[in-house]
């Protein structure tokens, strides 16, 4: 089976309704810095890596599993997964 290497970006965000004190603090600081009209600041994490898989669907399901079990705490966080164009592994 040919394996390919997929670049992955996982954005971890706090679930809707979960308070985000970091985002709120940043938002409160903005007017003092001269940035008006910036609203809805939410702070999360971006995690980049590559995953080996035979095809994109398999890559996706492995990353979803990884997010569920480790990269996010499903009680308070969601994951937005983006999978890029694969590179063939020689």
């Amino acid at each position: 089976m040919t394996m390919a290497s997929y670049p992955v970006l996982v954005e971890v965000t706090l679930r809707p309704g979960i308070a985000d004190p970091q985002g709120a603090t940043i938002e409160r600081a903005l007017p003092a810095l001269g940035f008006e009209g910036v609203e809805g600041v939410r702070v999360g994490k971006a995690i980049r890596f590559t995953v080996e898989a035979p095809d994109a669907d398999t890559a996706r399901s492995r990353v979803d599993d990884l997010c569920q079990k480790f990269l996010t705490n499903p009680v308070i966080e969601d994951a937005l997964v983006s999978i890029g164009v694969e590179a063939t592994i020689e």
Partner: peptide, 8 residues
Amino acid sequence: ALQKNAGL
């Protein structure tokens, strides 16, 4: 879960 303190 334990989330960041409300007052940061």
